[in-house]
Simulated assay, not measured.
Amino acid sequence: MDPESTLSALRDFSADRLGPELAARFVELARPGFALTEAESPGEVAGHSRFGGRAMLEPGTPWPTCDGFPLSLIAVLDTDALAPWLGDVLPAGTGLLNFFFLDAESEQCDPASYDLMSKYGHYEVEVSSVIAARSAHAVETSPPVRSSVFDPVPWAATPGFAFPDTWDPAWNGFDVGPDADDMARAMPGDYVENRLTEWSQRPGALDSEDIAFGWPRFPTGSSPMVPFGKDPTHYHHLLQLSSHDEWAIGGDGGWMHWAIPTDALRTGDFGQAVPTPDIW
């Protein structure tokens, strides 16, 4: 289905369980996104979208560093291939998004990365970078010495709509209706979720731990850790990554996320993207 038809079906599905008024407010929270899974054939790959491999940068683009130490390419999203489902979420012609992070976890990582990660931590902008490249100009770029290179895993991208998890600040002030009790008003996300029976069968479900755009999921029950003093409701999710064979985050485990101020996303200013991981 196309985005409009999927949203219409999602409203009907939600209205059957929440009533039309609450369902309409709930579906307003929906954001278009993609479930990312390993492509089983070349024809399934969403353009150049993949975990790992080499960066796709325009010639002359500096490789991102942390205090002079090179970051590692973690993933590439081909937004030209994803654009028809995203609508006006990001500017036309954004092209390829390269996601970099300081690799201090994998077997490849350089020991010098430990001190840098101890200095900054996983949530600071110094250890992360998102660089856009126009598809017609981007070329596969070899990394500098001490940057990790992970085996590429091409992604298929299944479109759908994501919703904020129950602890996301997007629920703050959500109107659950006049008949809801005080507990429902205190925890509107839980209230709505508990009434949505057969939720996994909804139209446009995103069934994956790796997700592009949409909303982030935080298994630890937290919310996006944006820079101090910033409002997380003014940020848009870019990419969620679970652990992969060669790369993980956060010691015992975690899911990696990147987010960006919504205004910066609309203008294509990916230099304002920040890491917002969920670590346990």
Rank of each mutant, 00 (worst) to 15 (best):
S106I: 01
S106F: 12
E107D: 08
Q108C: 02
Q108F: 01
D110F: 04
D110K: 03
P111D: 12
P111I: 07
A112V: 09
A112T: 10
A112Q: 09
Y114R: 01
S118H: 09
K119T: 15
G121Y: 06
E124S: 12
V125T: 06
V125F: 04
E126V: 09
S128Q: 14
V130H: 08
V130I: 04
V130A: 13
I131S: 06
I131Y: 11
A132D: 08
R134V: 09
T141C: 08
S142I: 10
S142K: 12
P143F: 13
P144K: 04
P144G: 03
V145Y: 07
F150K: 08
F150R: 05
F150H: 04
D151R: 12
P152R: 11
V153N: 02
V153E: 15
P154L: 07
P154V: 06
W155N: 00
W155E: 01
W155C: 00
A156C: 09
A156K: 06
T158Y: 00
T158M: 09
T158L: 05
G160I: 09
A162Q: 01
F163L: 08
P164H: 04
T166S: 07
T166I: 09
W167Y: 10
D168E: 15
P169R: 03
A170R: 11
A170C: 10
D175G: 11
V176W: 07
G177P: 04
P178R: 10
P178W: 05
D179Y: 11
M183C: 11
A184N: 02
A184G: 03
R185S: 03
R185A: 14
A186M: 13
A186F: 08
A186L: 14
A186I: 03
G189I: 08
G189K: 01
V192L: 04
V192F: 05
V192G: 00
V192D: 02
L196M: 04
L196Y: 12
T197I: 10
T197G: 14
W199A: 14
S200M: 14
Q201N: 11
Q201K: 11
P203I: 01
P203R: 00
P203S: 02
G204N: 00
A205Y: 09
A205R: 08
S208C: 00
I211Q: 01
G214E: 10
G214T: 03
